[in-house]
Simulated scan of single mutants.
Amino acid sequence: MAVVALAGGLGAPGVTTTAMALLMAWPLAPGQRVILAECDPDGGAVLPGALQGTVSNTYGLRNLALAGRQGQLADAFWRQLVDVTDEASRDRLVLPGVYDPAHTSSLGPVWEQLATLFAGIEQHQHDVLVDLGRRGAFGPSSVLAQRADAVLMVARNTLRGLQSAQVRLGALREQLGGATEVGLILVEAGPFGRDEVQRNLSTEVVAVLPWQPEQAAVLSDGAAQPRRFESGELMRAARTATTRIRQMVATRRSRLGHPGMPGGREVSNAR
């Protein structure tokens, strides 16, 4: 199974919206699940956004602080997950982030424990997407990036967005030391093309997501789904992205001698 961290730069590049798109598009075989863990030190956005406050903010990351100090995080973690599927199938789950950034200071010991939990979660047939927001790939929570199979920087393909991404990518490479795959997900809101970005930032553009504010609002703010949302351009691009991300993870694990592909299947056969 895969652990994939998503991070951003300055402004609002759309990290959480991208993470939600990947969560909903992630291919799952019977018995498998995917979790989106909101680990943004600046606070979570899914509960008041995509879920529109329909779930109590008593769930989530902040409840793991006490459990972590008591050595019970592994058990408490599963009770904090929220099902985001209409069918209540519990195969696409969210660990809501803190709703008040002030709570982040109590999570110091939690980050390492979460990183360990995520690294061993494949025994439960789960993949994990980790939303690190703008700051989470650095500082106390950076262990989540360091222990991931891949770290993907989300950036708009504008001059401002790419300049910010360039600085963050340089810092990430220095921090990770080549042990983790690093790539870019571009949100196509500017004039710079995929090839140009790859050449100038010396980083693979793993996926390009279209600038589709109406479709993105479904994922970011719980807006009513426009017609043919699931077959629309944004979700099609997200499904394509999951294929390439899983290939990245498979390549890394093969290089490190990890047995098998993510999910125990050849990526090309994923549905």
Results as ranks from 00 to 15, higher is better:
V3W: 07
V4G: 04
L6N: 01
G8P: 01
G9A: 07
L10N: 13
G11L: 06
P13R: 02
T17S: 11
T18L: 15
T18W: 05
A21M: 09
L22M: 09
L23T: 08
A25L: 00
W26C: 04
P27Y: 10
L28Q: 03
L28E: 04
Q32Y: 08
Q32A: 06
R33L: 02
R33A: 11
L36C: 06
E38I: 00
C39T: 05
D40M: 03
P41Y: 04
P41T: 04
G44E: 08
A45D: 14
A45L: 11
V46T: 04
V46W: 00
P48R: 08
Q52F: 05
T54S: 15
N57I: 11
Y59F: 15
Y59H: 00
L61N: 03
R62N: 12
R62A: 14
L64S: 11
D75R: 09
D75W: 07
A76G: 11
R79S: 14
Q80K: 09
V82W: 02
T85Y: 05
T85G: 12
S89M: 12
L93I: 12
L93H: 02
V94Q: 01
V94S: 00
P96I: 12
Y99N: 14
Y99S: 15
A102T: 10
A102P: 05
L107Y: 03
W111E: 00
E112L: 13
Q113A: 13
A115K: 09
A119N: 02
D127W: 10
D127P: 10
L129Y: 03
L129I: 10
D131S: 03
G133M: 02
A137F: 09
A137C: 10
S142P: 04
S142A: 15
A145R: 07
Q146N: 10
R147N: 13
A148H: 05
A150N: 02
A150K: 03
V151E: 01
V154P: 01
L159Q: 08
G161N: 05
G161Q: 02
S164V: 12
Q166S: 14
Q166D: 14
L169D: 04
G170T: 06
G170L: 07
E174K: 14
Q175E: 09
G177F: 08
G177N: 12
V187S: 05
V187D: 02
V187Y: 01
E188T: 06
A189D: 10
G190L: 12
R194H: 10
D195M: 13
E196P: 09
E196F: 12
V197T: 15
Q198F: 03
R199M: 12
N200K: 15
T203V: 01
V205T: 12
A207M: 07
L209G: 08
L209F: 07
L209D: 00
W211L: 14
Q212A: 14
Q212F: 08
P213D: 10
E214T: 15
Q215E: 15
A217Y: 06
V218P: 05
A223Y: 09
A223I: 08
R227Y: 13
G232I: 07
A238Q: 07
R239V: 00
T240S: 15
T240H: 11
T242E: 06
T243Y: 09
R246N: 12
Q247G: 04
Q247I: 04
V249M: 06
R252L: 15
R252Q: 11
S254F: 14
S254V: 06
G257Y: 08
P259W: 05
P259A: 09
P262C: 08
V267Y: 01
S268K: 09
R271K: 13
